[in-house]
């Protein structure tokens, strides 16, 4: 390498005084571009928030703050409220996290600690591929495969057994439609699983081997090492991962629209059809004329979703920070 360079330069090294200070011009330009990129993101985000808020303002002015806690969505009487969608969004996302969390823990720990090298790659790639499947495919899979399965084998026995118990039975009441909150939550769980798992794997791999080996050395079982060493070490990052999964579940649109049943009614049942903010916007947007109360209400819904996502993100940041302190 050195030899080639020498030959190219004719064997002579140029005196240092002839070198130009090229950085004097290009560096500020480069730094300015970097600044522009950073500011651009802020500006874009700000404009989107402003646009959603301005677009939804007429709805807020018309209904007042009642818009947020009114469980009514009636296009005939033009009476709109967001409660059913907010509830559906949070409920389905929480189901998704509750289902995905233990699975992610299992997969991540298996991959980092137990899995033989030969299986590590195939399983790792399979988890990553789950993330690459377009959401519409999950929607169709949910609609044609999961919904009939739920309607035939899962919901009827649950309704007949748990559904008869007082109070708890409310969660399992209603006709076995197949679609509904639980089905939406399950599909969402599969969709957020790869994100949470990938971040868990990364966290677990960063646990210093010395810590784990010491724990094993004093006689800890695999479970004890996982519970008392690995998880506490990566807890902050794990909370962040869960929150990111939650954030993704909140905004998912197409897959949810296919399986949630799309009913603008409030129900405590896991089997009852419901609606999320994103699914409602997807359903109603094509028939919302410009300047109509419906369109502004949909934009207001979008703004509320933005705020919810923001709160989740802020919460995850705060949690992570408090653990660090």
């Amino acid at each position: 390498m050195d030899a080639t360079m020498d030959t190219r330069g004719g064997g002579q090294i140029e005196p240092i005084t002839k070198a130009k200070a090229t950085g004097a011009v290009s560096d500020p330009i480069f730094i300015a571009l970097l600044w522009a990129s950073g500011i651009f993101v802020l500006l874009l985000l700000g404009l989107i928030i402003a646009q959603l808020f301005m677009g939804g303002l007429p709805a807020l002015q018309h209904f007042g703050l009642d818009f947020i806690w009114t469980a009514n969505w009636n296009p005939v009487t033009e009476n709109y409220g967001a409660l059913v969608m907010i509830y559906g969004t949070l409920f389905s996302a929480v189901i998704a996290v509750v289902v995905a969390l233990p699975l992610s823990f299992g997969i991540a720990f298996f991959l980092t600690e137990i899995c033989p090298q030969a299986f590590k790659r195939p399983i790792g790639v399979a988890v990553q591929l789950l993330a690459a499947v377009p959401s519409i495919i999950y929607g169709m899979w949910g609609f044609f495969v999961i919904v009939p399965l739920m309607a035939a084998y899962v919901q009827p026995p649950l309704i007949e057994t748990l559904g008869q118990v007082p109070i708890l039975g409310l969660l399992f009441s209603g006709p076995p439609l197949g679609s509904g909150m639980l089905t939406a939550g399950l599909i969402l769980a599969v969709m957020i699983l790869p994100f949470i798992t990938a971040m868990f794997v990364e966290t677990l791999e960063s646990v210093p081997p010395m810590l784990k080996e010491s724990a094993y050395g004093v006689g800890g079982t695999t479970y004890e090492v996982y519970k008392n060493v690995s998880i506490p070490y990566g807890r902050t990052a794990m909370v962040g991962a869960i929150m990111l999964g939650l954030g993704r579940a909140l905004g998912e649109t197409m897959a949810v629209t296919f399986v949630i049943g799309n009913a603008t009614r409030l129900s405590a049942s896991l089997f009852a059809p419901g609606a999320t903010i994103a699914s409602t916007i997807a359903n109603e947007f094509p028939e919302a004329p410009i300047g109509s109360l419906k369109l502004t209400s949909l934009l207001q819904l979008g703004f509320i979703l933005f705020v919810i996502s923001f709160i989740v993100l802020a919460l995850s940041r705060a949690l992570v920070r408090s653990r660090l302190d």
């Binding site: 009514n72 969505w73 009636n74 296009p75 005939v76 009487t77 439609l177 679609s179 509904g180 629209t257 296919f258 049943g261 799309n262 009913a263 603008t264 009614r265 059809p273 359903n283 109603e284 028939e287």
Partner: peptide, 17 residues
Amino acid sequence: KVGSATSVQWPVGAGAK
């Protein structure tokens, strides 16, 4: 109770796209 429009507030049932 319900009325007529391109989408309405259905008292019962499930919606599909």
